[in-house]
Nucleic acid binder design. Structure first.
Lengths: 240, 240
DNA sequence: CGGGTTGTTGAGGTAATTCAAACCGCGTGG
DNA sequence: CCACGCGGTTTGAATTACCTCAACAACCCG
């Protein structure tokens, strides 16, 4: 049932009929594994299929001349990592497997058929793209106008809720398989500074982070530090 | 012919049939004027129509607790400022008229009819959202990993090409009706620092900026400073 | 002509960076 | 079983890019 995470994700947005469910299952022609660190797509590619995560974490990234890297999006199971490539054709960023991943493969041809015959499903895929964009905007705000501490807190809030929505949290804890360097590439910060900010969140008793496990000890306070309003994640199901 | 700028914008992505053109014209039920500084939409709104710019500049923005503002997108004639509100329902940001604007009004009901009956047009509207997201990602990269100078240069490159695509440039010059404070809100910089960076671009002979007019004196060098690759703007028409 | 907005400049402060080194946990191979 | 190497984390010190505050100049509009 490789389509299950995708279906659950789309159900965050609206109810899905059995017929639609079957169509999505048929659209996933195969699944494949990717090793940690592997590129799922590269800048400049013109993919003929789109990928969604079944298990693992992935990141979209861009490299700049100085050798620095900026991660522009983190993806968790259920997320399409390059749905837009169906519409926009050419990848303007790479996608890498942050952990070992399994991905479901949906040919653009299948997406085209859906777009021709399934208006409701097409809208839900559109919501997918629009929510990606909303998350991007949120990142712009936090990079541009929040302190490193606020920004880090914000990313933790976001990830917690997104993982909770796909059933990957336990109470207030979740697996965060990112190095501090990778976190820095998300936040636009140096590794050293990420470390200091994480220390501060720990010292304040807001989070515990050991190994790959983050425990949010004080969720209200974390939200307050981050000034976090989850509206943009669009986690409520309604007719669309 | 209030739909004309919208049609031209969509034609950047792909050919549009006469029938599609007529449908778009019908979808624009009216136009309205907005004064400089007026809000076209506010955070938390649930609009029942989407707006595109016919004339003028608009910006999406978010406010943070400290009173700072971050602009997450700039819009020029032809751009929808809140197309995503059709899919995502609730505005997670405000939209303000940076200059006096005229906007075309497209009821969500009309978008729904298009999405039910016009797969090709629906895809082009999807491209619209996807390109917005691509621009967002570009902003994340430039805010996160580029210097203020590079970032400012990058925004000028982006605006020049977007304005050129809708016929609002003359040679290498264009109207940029933004204050340095507003530019700072786009770039995540203070007004003072924006000023210094602009001075530097002037001193290097890369641009002339007097009043509302920017002249790009050395386009290759501006692109080089910004490390600018226009791919993400998706300015090539192809079948979609 | 005057008052508000915008642009410019200077000086001092600070958040984050860079560079460097030490440390830690962990898997691997001798 | 220990030594080693490696990726990741942590700490310190010096540097820097950008910020804040403040004053002033230029401009525009009524």
């Amino acid at each position: 049932m490789p389509a299950a995470p995708l279906i659950r994700k789309l159900e965050q947005f609206d109810r899905i009929s059995d017929a639609e469910r079957r169509l999505l299952e048929q659209a996933v022609v195969r699944q494949r594994a990717a090793a940690k660190g592997e590129d799922l797509a590269r800048e400049g590619d013109r993919p003929s299929e789109s990928l969604f995560l079944i298990t693992g974490f992935a990141a979209r990234y861009n490299l700049v001349r100085t050798g620095k890297r900026q991660i522009t999006a983190l993806h968790v199971p259920g997320d399409f990592v390059d749905l837009h490539s169906f519409l926009v054709k050419r990848m303007d960023h790479g996608v890498m497997a942050v952990t070992a991943c399994t991905v479901g493969v949906v040919p653009h041809e299948a997406l085209r058929v859906i777009s021709e015959t399934q208006p409701h499903l097409t809208r839900l895929l559109g919501v997918n793209i629009a929510v990606d964009a909303a998350i991007h905007r949120h990142w712009i705000v936090t990079i541009g106008r929040q302190s490193a501490l606020e920004h880090a807190a914000s990313l933790l809030c976001e990830l917690f809720l997104r993982l909770q929505a796909v059933g990957l949290t336990e109470g207030h804890s979740f697996k965060l398989p990112l190095t501090q360097a990778e976190l820095g590439d998300c936040l636009g910060l140096s590794t050293v500074h990420v470390n200091r900010v994480v220390q501060e969140l720990r010292a304040e008793g807001v989070i515990v982070w050991r190994g790959e496990t983050v425990i949010i000890e004080d969720w209200p306070r974390l939200q307050q530090i981050a000034e976090f309003d989850p509206t943009f994640l669009c986690l409520e199901s309604e007719p669309r």
